[in-house]
Amino acid sequence: MEEEKVIVYDPVYCSGCMRCMTACSTYNNGATSLSKSRLQIVRHEGHAISPLTEEDDLIFDVLTCQQCNQPACVYFCPTLSIKKNNETGCVTINHDTCVGCRMCMVSCPFGAISYDGDRRALIKCELCGGDPQCVRFCPTGALKFLPKKEAHLPKRNHLARNLIQSRTRAIRDAATREGEHAGS
């Protein structure tokens, strides 16, 4: 039985280059675009819109299909055109029976389903048949294709590192304070 795998995004490593998106659209549509990528990097470019005297953040994040265990799109589809593969966990659209009613789009809590006006088709991430190109093309390793049961690890590792650092700092500060106290 195939292992259930998902795309995991790690904002710490993302350089915002959107190579995932050009790879996605080129692979799936045969033409390059950002608007028709199944996976969308969202951005806040604080440096571009703030005056010299104000500081702002530069943040990237991702919106894409989470391959849910209880996919709202599957339940809302009136023509039963969306299926979740029990082995791979991948949620796919059958375009032969899809009527384009967009109920899946409405129901998806992640905004991960969109409509390609040129091809008149609803599109979502279907993991490129098991070899997601966004992950393959990510130059920094910010996107990973991990077994669902390990998907939490990148985030947990960052948090653990932060926690250990702040603990170490707190212990060191306390020791310094005690030292100063003893010295006075």
Binding site: A23, T26, G30, A31, S33
Partner: peptide, 21 residues
Amino acid sequence: GTGEIAIDDPRGLLESSYSAV
């Protein structure tokens, strides 16, 4: 800009880009 750019050999382009990088 919301459009797309047609490519002569899309999958081939991806492979060449991948190996170049």
